[in-house]
Computed example of a mutant assay.
Amino acid sequence: YITGEYGGGAFVLVYLACILAVGVPVMMAEIAFGRRGRGSPIEAIANLAREAGARPLWKVFGWIAMLAGFMILSFYVVVAGWSFSYLWKMASGALSGHSVAELGAIFEAGNANPWALGGWATLVTVVTMLIVGRGVQEGVEKSVRWMMPGMVIMLLIMIGYALTSGNFSAGFHFLFDFDVTRLSSEGVLAALGHAFFTLSLASGAILTYGSYLPSGTSIARTTFTVAIADTLVALMAGLAIFPIIF
């Protein structure tokens, strides 16, 4: 949506530049903080401040990161609830044979029903709690091990569908042709913000990830691996969506 709003290929190029120039260094710093502090954002920053002889008030930044993570989670359980809702509607045939306007009305009707919206969000919350409650290795790692490949396979299927059923050429050119006249200062700022958003920076997530990173692991290699994988998935999503739109 943001790529479509702010100029297509021009936005993508600035976004990639922001990932490289800002996102990667910030991610390296967060991973380093987490690995050195060995704890949650609050504990890690408090440990580092104590080690450096700095004031304990530095841990306030850890609390801010935790608050940001909580706010992001509160947003995402609703969006993930939409996905569960759409999966049910798709399986029951409720999405087939409708016009764009009718599909928009289905979405709006779902959002207008607080019980349905809250119910799906609650389901996502419970599933998340069950996974996270099992711990990093037994819960998060085991689920991500099949969820992430599954997502990539679904994206590849959607790209194949876009290639055969959509205007793939128009979507490809929109996504990768650099037209500077379509880029605004607001678009540049959005690209910077999106770089932070897609890499989960400044929310405590990467800092926590770093706290579990073994001492001998290369921070640079880990950072570039995550940044490249994240960016490839984003571009794949664009190749799946824009040809269908065109």
Rank of each mutant, 00 (worst) to 15 (best):
G34F: 09
V226C: 11
R55D: 07
G97A: 02
F33L: 15
W120K: 11
F84W: 10
G171L: 02
G210H: 11
I228D: 05
A237I: 12
A21R: 05
A101G: 10
D230S: 15
I157L: 13
A21W: 08
F176Q: 09
M27T: 09
G23I: 05
W58V: 01
S165D: 08
T223R: 14
S99T: 15
L87G: 15
T181M: 05
R35Q: 13
F176H: 11
F174W: 09
T225N: 14
A44R: 09
I31W: 06
G97V: 03
G23Q: 06
A190E: 07
V60E: 00
A105Q: 15
V77I: 14
V77R: 05
L57K: 09
V188D: 01
W58K: 02
Y15L: 14
V100L: 08
F242R: 10
A162C: 05
V233Q: 08
S85P: 01
D230F: 10
S165N: 12
V60L: 14
A80M: 07
I19E: 04
C18V: 05
F174R: 12
M154W: 03
L73D: 00
E5L: 13
A17F: 08
L192N: 03
M158Y: 01
R55L: 02
A240V: 02
A116K: 13
I72Y: 03
L199T: 07
L201C: 09
L201H: 12
E43Q: 15
R182G: 03
T128C: 13
L156W: 00
A116G: 11
I157F: 06
F197I: 01
T208C: 02
C18P: 11
K142W: 01
V144S: 15
T222C: 04
K89N: 03
H173E: 11
R50Y: 01
F224W: 15
A68K: 11
T128F: 02
H98A: 05
F224S: 11
H173R: 14
